[in-house]
Amino acid sequence: MRRTLALYTGFFAQSLKARMAYKADFFGEIVASVLATAAGIVFVLMLFHRVPDLLGWQRAEVFLIYGLSLIPFGLFNVISVNLYEFADRYIIEGRFDRLLLRPMPTLAQLLMEKSRLTAIGEVIVGIVVAAWASVDLGLAWGVADFAWTAVLVVSGAVIYTAVFTILSCLSFFFEDRIGVGAPVWNLIMFGRFPVPIFGPWIGAVLSWVVPFAFVSFYPATHFLDKTGYRTLCYLTPVVAIGIAVVALAFWRIGVRSYRSTGS
């Protein structure tokens, strides 16, 4: 197990190194990712300039949920690049062969082979926003709160990765690219707000179909003075493990029906 871990970090370090070969790009991209994320924050700020609250949810509460969602999102973006390029680069162009020839799990190789460290910008913005919101809310952070935040971050990154892994699996079965990625991608935005404001239907979809509500909304209620979310809040790691198991099962089925390319 320790050897496997050492191997993964070596793998990851090398892929980062390959990326760092273009340094100017690298820092430019971090700045771009910070700015793009900040634009979303500005939008919410302007919203609260017009309205005092969102169906009972105060500005600081919304920002805490929003900020906490950006941390796992940034981590997911570090490793997710290849998931988007999976259909084109790995299935249609047949690069998946190479992963199958190496004595390592294919999904782990896929996620680590290419990374986008510049997405760390999103993590930084997330930490700043969440910290500011928690000061605004007058929260006193104990050890348990930090521990819970760690659970939230890991679970959130797992949920994002699992959802997009399941979508990538479709490429194993269909020769054409199919555009389900973009609509699901847009759902991520909904998951950054208190889900009840969207009504029961969207709330149900975000909880039980594409569980982005478990990335930050439910687990963030740990810090908030709201009733009715306790069970769902602490169900977060269970949901993360559950969807990870489903994603791995889909992946196995997909790999078995991989057809490779003509030559």
Binding site: F11, Q14, K17, A18, R19, G94, D97, L101, M104
Partner: peptide
């Protein structure tokens, strides 16, 4: 086993050959 598919490289495009070798050493 070892496999060489002439049309397609097993190595990492952006890495120096020696770095690819070290990575493969770790993998194997």
């Amino acid at each position: 086993i070892g496999a060489v598919f002439g049309q397609r490289t097993q190595l990492w495009w952006d890495l120096a050959v020696i770095e690819s070798f070290h990575l493969l050493g770790k993998i194997y």
